[in-house]
Design a protein around this nucleic acid. Sequence first.
DNA 1: AGCTTTCAACTTTTT
DNA 2: GTTGAAAGCT
Length: 689
Amino acid sequence: MADTLNPAQLAAVHHLDGPCLVIAGAGSGKTRVITTKIARLLQEGYAAKNIAAITFTNKAAQEMRERAKHLIGARAAKDLAISTFHSLGVRILREEGTRLGLKQQFSILDSDDVLSVLKDAGGTTDANQAKGWQWTISLWKNTGITSETAIHAAKDENERVAAVVMGRYEERLAAYQAVDFDDLISLPLKLFTNDAEARGKWQDMLRYVLVDEYQDTNAVQYELLKQLVGTRAMFTAVGDDDQSIYGWRGATIENLKKLPLEFPRLKVIPLEQNYRSTGNILRAANNVIAGNPKIYEKKLWSEFGDGDPVALVESDGEEHEAERAVARINALRGGGFAQHFAEFAILYRANHQARVFEQALRRAQIPYKVSGGQSFFDRTEIKDLCAWLRLLVNQDDDPAFLRSITVPKRGIGHQTLGALGEFSKQWRCSMFEALFAESLGTVLSKKAIGSLHEFGRYVNELQYRAEHTVGAEDARVFIMEWLGDIGYEQYLIDQEENEKVAQARWGNVLDFVDWVCKRCGGQITQDGGSTFETERQSVLQVAQTISVILSLAERGEERDEVTLTTLHASKGLEWPHVFLAGVNEGLLPFKADDEEMTADRLEEERRLMYVGITRARRTLAVSTLRRRRKGRETVMGVPSRFILEMKLHESIGREDPREKLKRMREEMAAKAAARDVQAAKDAAAEGKR
DNA sequence: AGCTTTCAACTTTTT
DNA sequence: GTTGAAAGCT
């Protein structure tokens, strides 16, 4: 990317004296605009703590902070209020919650917690029913519907039941002094709407607000934003109406339409220069999205030249498609177009599509990662136990040491640990090594050293046992004893006032134990035709695996792997070589058998296709299935209408794809005929036998 | 009748 | 790879 900003980016950065909406096309350098604008605001005299940047995911927030750090230095970046909508909500509620009758240490329920409260409130043990309620209630809460108004919003019998359950659910939350994720937005909004003093205080604190991925905001988030910026309206919203793909969870592009109406001084700036993809890819993207009605006109272009034409891949079925993808990866690498596996991504509509690709990649010995899921390891209770396991693997892991020695509390406080830390710094050793140092007596009391030694000895004992415990059953016994020794269940109960929440957390712990034990015992894996049994592992070996996974995740280190991900999860990412899988009618655009395709739905599916296309930097393959398995029978695969909409014949440097499509159809028909003949022969042979 | 086994189907997801 | 439903077995 060039060192200087282009005129549109500059305009976006320098428009400081009023509301600003940046329509940031895919790959148009929007994060750069946001961070540069933050620097500009600082220059303009804004204090760092008065600048708020709001994102949707923690990852995005972290990334933005990193980028800001590079630009303005760590010191200034530290004070910036960069956070997600939700963590900003937490901050507001921690400080002002008492005004809403919420104690300062209210608890936040995650979706598992919510599920168990809902089962309880609805008097059911059926997880699916409770999940249905959870979904409906969350959607209501995200569109501004409360337990009072829910009954009017209910459209069928199920929803009417959900509305009743919602009432009881909300009562329970209030009784537990707990909030769910949606409350983290709606309660601050309620506060600001009713309490001018609190509103004034926060408007004064967050004097300039930047919002990333504005097209993903829901109705409640929009209202909160309005309350935050007040009539001063000093804000910049950055978003792309063409990349709004979260309508199904309450995001609404109404928020984009409303903005100029509610803020007449709004300056709208489109960013159209793309710094990511080749001309052929952008042309296909523009052609597809042209099928949608426009809110803000924009057309992406780049200076990269036409590049390779977009490839159209047709395969006989899912397995064949996966083979074609593997072949393509090998061909591009062999041809010197790519050096690393990490340059490739395979994108698909639904998670289950990943499986076939996983098998094919494994067979071809190509490393891959499936994105999404793994958030399991983010839970505090799991992190606690992982810290212990990490310590067993590597005693010199100081963060793991600190977490283990304080979880659960064992009478070793920050005084002792501070001294130990100081000591280890001085002697350039790890804290665990410092534990048994003789000269420790000069800085710490006998009693403190006693408890430290006890901890150290226990860790050594655990480590020995972990190394020698093999197999699922023994592993379970060992781990449960360990958890009993450290009193972890009791710790969870003490930690959490709400008994239900504590139980749910303990449930997660048990899941984790299962997970570990499963890996300790030999497991039978079926891969394609072959069946093999993996080695039985010791607890320590499994812990090592976990440590590796965690440390890679922590350092954000990239392994050289092909990425498999859903289209939704791919937004914001990019790869040199992208393979769009299963671009068939019914899959993309997705259509369930029992539901009709509305214009809104189709438009969102089209945006999803657009997001997929624009992930590619250099080459893009669009893959369709001639035959699609649907249960036992094989149905005819119809290429997605989006493929036609790409107008690939406009691609430069290839044969006319309409001709190619025609040829492929003929081939398909011939093959199908041949198959039928073969099938008839087989049947005849079967009959003879 | 109640249990086990087999078979098919399966949106998208963050906090 | 998991779950739910239907068919088959005791």
